[in-house]
């Protein structure tokens, strides 16, 4: 059971390749104010830019510490864009929307 407190738009049912245009995983360390901010910020961006076409999973590292090494997490919060490739890591409370969009490859680097 994934600890997820955000609306997940359904999972891939075994079909090859993700069903959604965007697959994101947000790793936080406990539900602190900063974590909550990060969740709200990334959610707003997703809804605005790819409503209905994304999957966002929020993972609390304290509950699943083994994932930190496996997913190469050092900072919290870290949002991993798993799909589409290339993989990217957006770290911080996601308050700098411009940077988040760059991280999601929605806008190119200035």
């Amino acid at each position: 059971m994934e600890p997820s407190n955000t609306p997940e738009t359904g999972r891939n049912d075994g079909a090859p390749g993700p069903r959604h245009a965007y697959v994101l995983r947000l790793f936080v360390a406990g539900m602190t104010a900063r974590s909550t901010r990060a969740v709200a910020n990334i959610l707003a961006i997703c809804e605005e830019h790819f409503a209905g076409a994304y999957e966002l999973e929020v993972v609390n590292l304290y509950e699943r510490p083994s994932l930190a090494a496996g997913e190469q997490i050092i900072a919290a919060p870290t949002c991993v864009k798993a799909f589409p490739l290339p993989q990217r890591r957006i770290i911080g409370d996601m308050s700098n929307t411009g940077r988040v969009l760059e991280g999601l490859d929605l806008v190119t680097h200035a």
């Binding site: 790793f27 360390a29 900063r34 590292l61 304290y62 510490p65 083994s66 930190a68 090494a69 190469q72 997490i73 050092i74 900072a75 919290a76 919060p77 870290t78 290339p86 993989q87 990217r88 890591r89 957006i90 770290i91 911080g92 409370d93 996601m94 308050s95 700098n96 929307t97 940077r99 988040v100 760059e102 991280g103």
Partner: peptide, 26 residues
């Protein structure tokens, strides 16, 4: 610990709790 500068985008406030969790778990 792999850190790829070009994979990372910094967007506001963060800490290294991920590293702490990782080390603590190990």
């Amino acid at each position: 610990v792999k850190i790829e500068r070009r994979e990372i985008e910094e967007t506001g406030d963060y800490d290294l709790e991920g590293l702490f969790v990782r080390l603590g778990y190990a």
